[in-house]
Design a protein around this nucleic acid. Sequence first.
DNA 1: GGCCAGGACACCA
DNA 2: TGGTGTCATGGC
Length: 214
Amino acid sequence: MQLTITQLYQKMLDQMGPSGWWPADSKAEIIIGAILIQNTNWRNADQALTGLRQATQLDPERLLALPIEKLHDLVRPAGFFHNKSRALISVFSWLQQFNYNYPAIQGKYGIQLRSRLLKLRGVGPETADVLLTYVFDVPTLIADKYTRTLFTLLGIKGLRSYQQLARLVTLPDDFTPAMAQDFHGLIDEFGKVYFHPLAKFQKSFLAGDQLVLK
DNA sequence: GGCCAGGACACCA
DNA sequence: TGGTGTCATGGC
């Protein structure tokens, strides 16, 4: 059957229940997790997150106070430890200027917030959208690999890159932050089950569905 | 032992 | 704008 974005979200929610994403106890933990998970599996990222929690309680000030060698050692299990350590320092140093007042930052930058986030070292399109959605409560479609795979299987063509999907699709105006957060969680949870291997999609509750963009 | 996992960036045409 | 190589780790 034909589904709009909103109907797709509703169907996934009905079938799967709320995703509970992003699983974290604080904004800082979401930010750290979003950086550690870049091109890495969650097992590796979680190892690094656990180490950082023991060392800093995931407190930004304590993280920024770590000697660089110590930070490298803690981030190492997540891979790309040079890049990710630098990204953590870049993001939290910036946030520190605003005393980690997330609503104030969102208010200051408004719709320019995404482009501001993209200037931070180690923050690309996907991480920026994750931060917008889960840290700043700005509903955003996170056009990651799972989302592109799912949308492609639902009949949308030309989604080879992040930008291609991000340009093509934006969330409907009636999407609340909670809905956008849950939607991304549902897509990734779905992907982990049904895209290994790809053929399993044909046995899923979305088999045969087509996505219509407006 | 090769392959992959919820990217970002520099460099090139 | 779009394509390619590089950055690192741990589990399967």
